[in-house]
Write a protein that binds this DNA or RNA. Structure first.
Lengths: 331, 331
DNA sequence: CTGAAAGCGCTTACAG
DNA sequence: CTGAAAGCGCTTACAG
């Protein structure tokens, strides 16, 4: 900036004004712009933030379980869409469901002075950000509510969606419905299990322990567990799979066993090709992108000065009937 | 930091040393740490970078077509894996294949002083970063090579993979092979088309114009175009779909028409459930995560001082036979 | 409208 | 090892 000022023959104050669009005499502005082009000057917004009144970095951070899970990357996209309109750029990182990694990421992001954070917290989150929030950090939770701090959050209707899915199965006469759940401890997992239980209770069906399973490592275990459950003598006539990766694995297992037209299935969260395969997959859908948009909205409203109590948004999870969930009981 | 110094009864220099792990007398270090905890002090790494010798922000930027495309989010994950070992956090943004948006993102990221940039450039990239690279920016291209600047890049073997895929079809007697390609102009698209052509030429099959199609809007058009092609009187006996989203749409069309067991298909890039559906989908696979890892490696080697000529890495694209690509010609 | 000076939160020579 | 001072690239009162 000093170099630009020297070449343009003005003070750095004037260069700063031109760069920031403050009123400057036209002839000086032209000189400055020429010098900027000549030198290939890049404004250092970060340095400016140190002195600027608002102190904003125009930067926010996203912390997900895994940035490459399509569910989370769709949230990312939704956040980006609204951040973009404000000239805000977005960090994104994966906690891998490890509280320590989550904490590292939070620390790293705050050391870079992000204006806000959108977090899908780990099951055992120890998030301690009260002071940072008091100091102006905008904090929003997405997909899972915060446990150790009171903050804005946006969730899907997990319990309601699961209950609707399972009731859909009981209404068609299924009484043995397998539950393939996510690692317990994760909020969405326990809510969906609660929904499953509520639906069984409503239909007067007793729970069976061996029908409720929680694969530890989703991608690898879910396939095995599903296969095993389906091969057993008291196999279920229907499955409720409570997470997108688990649904994919259960579908693989069903298709490999050739049981996809025998055993009903409803999944939580849509899957690619879910509509194309035979039978097409009935799911409870959630709009990840919309979760992201809403989370960003909450975040920016805080940066814009909203100072009221924490808000909690719950998004609908409509049931999409496509075939797999409408198969009658077969055994 | 000043407050910490005041409470600990030391100079800010000493606080700085403690925070950065420089040698400090044990008793003073303890006092500083207590003050840090008491105040909830957050180090401002960004402010430090202004004065620090290396000037590094420990920040890099990723620019993809779309962060929510599973291919790109897997690259993101690969980058993150190697960035993480260095305490580097990652921005990620979507260009939507628009050069102007790409430029905005680059400018925004450079204004936040990222140490490096990993870009999957738009078809008509006007990327002008020579001066920034000269000033120390580490720049790597991924998935698509740079057109307007010489820089490190890591690509998949697009032409070779496509040629292998199509030759696989011709070897089984297919002579009418439909090509469903990405928007032309995108490097990967033209390479894959070249591979398709090479395979036809090698098999002595003349090209047919109406069998080579480029959906404009992948998600929406690919379905229509595939359906139309399959319904025509001179329909192909096999399809080569040259991108993951296009493969998904073509599969939807095939399944909806009930032709999935009649018309062979090989896709470029794997798709979820590709293994589960019937017939399972034969693909040319690329490891997006590995692309990301390698790109990050190239980037960090530059930051570590490598100053040689631009490198170009080409990753293998093995053919995975699963069934859909092994269907014989039917008409 | 414009410029000189002070200062944002840090790190880095430089003395001690 | 420790502290006082200068300075990184900017913005912001404050005079003119």
């Amino acid at each position: 900036m000093r170099d630009v000022a020297a070449i343009a023959g003005v003070s750095v104050s004037t260069v700063s004004r031109v760069v920031n669009g403050s009123p400057v005499a036209a002839d000086l502005a032209v000189k400055v712009q020429q010098a900027v082009a000549l030198l290939g000057y890049r404004h250092n917004h970060t340095a400016g933030a140190l002195r600027r009144a608002d102190g904003l970095s125009l930067t926010i951070g996203l912390i997900f379980e895994d940035v490459s899970n399509p569910f989370f990357s769709a949230i990312h996209r939704g956040v980006e869409e609204t951040a973009r309109t404000r000239g805000v750029v977005t960090f994104a990182g994966s906690s891998d469901e490890e509280p320590e990694r989550e904490r590292e990421l939070i620390d790293a992001l705050l050391a870079r002075r992000v204006d806000g954070l959108i977090i899908a917290p780990t099951a055992t989150d120890r998030i301690h950000l009260r002071r940072d929030v008091a100091a102006g950090l905008a904090l929003v939770f997405v997909d899972r509510p915060p446990v150790s701090i009171d903050a804005d959050c946006v969730l899907s209707d997990n319990r309601g969606g699961a209950e609707r899915a399972v009731t859909h199965l009981t209404m068609q006469g299924h009484r043995r419905i397998g539950y393939l759940g996510d690692r317990s401890g994760i909020h969405t997992a326990s809510e969906r299990l609660a929904g499953y239980r509520a639906a069984l209770a409503r239909a007067g069906i007793p729970e069976e322990r061996q029908l409720i399973r929680h694969p530890r490592h989703r991608a690898t275990d879910a396939y095995e567990i599903t296969s095993e459950m389906l091969r057993s003598s008291d196999a279920p006539t229907a499955l409720f799979t409570s997470q997108n990766l688990i649904t994919l694995e259960a579908l693989r297992a069903l298709h490999h066993l050739g049981l996809q037209a025998q055993v009903a299935l409803v999944g939580f969260d849509d899957v690619p090709l879910g509509e194309a395969i035979e039978p097409a997959v009935t799911v409870v859908a959630q709009s990840a992108r919309e979760l992201g948009r809403q989370a960003a909205q909450l975040l920016f409203s805080r940066l814009d000065g909203y100072d009221g109590p924490a808000r909690r948004l719950i998004l609908d999870t409509p049931l999409i009937q496509r075939g797999s969930g409408e198969l009658p009981p077969r055994r």
